[in-house]
């Protein structure tokens, strides 16, 4: 069984974790095209190399980011999501979306 290093709880059996999908940038839902939105929701980049993924340590309810190599399955790095800028998650930050619409 693989070991995953949780930034909060340290190395643990992978069975303690839940996969949360790839870290993707959401296009601005207010202005993107249907196609851009569909690509965000349905399409997954299935290339080789290092990918950023969401992982949850279920017993502590802690979400973090793991950078994993898709060929070797080696987890290069794990860290708290706060280390990523909000722009990594959103093309247009949600707060701005709200203000722009109001």
């Amino acid at each position: 069984m693989k070991i995953l290093n949780c930034p909060l709880n340290g190395p643990r059996n992978i069975s303690e974790f839940v996969y949360g999908g790839e870290v993707k940038q959401m296009p601005d839902p207010a202005s993107c095209t249907d196609r851009e939105w569909a690509e965000y929701v349905f399409y997954h980049n299935n290339g080789t190399g290092v990918v950023r993924e969401w992982w949850l340590h279920a017993p502590s309810g802690y979400w973090f980011i793991a950078e994993r190599h898709r060929v070797s399955d080696e987890v290069v790095r794990t860290y708290d999501p706060s280390e990523l800028e909000q722009s990594e998650f959103f093309a247009a930050p949600p707060a701005d979306v709200q203000e722009a619409r109001q």
Binding site: V18, G20, W54, L56, G61, W63, P81, S82, Q86, F89, F90, P94
Partner: peptide
């Protein structure tokens, strides 16, 4: 609950979420 906490890890709103 997991969905909520994951979204707020991105939104970073001032809210505490308890199951």
């Amino acid at each position: 609950y997991r969905n909520m906490t994951r979204w707020n890890a991105m939104w970073r709103l001032r809210v505490d979420i308890s199951n």
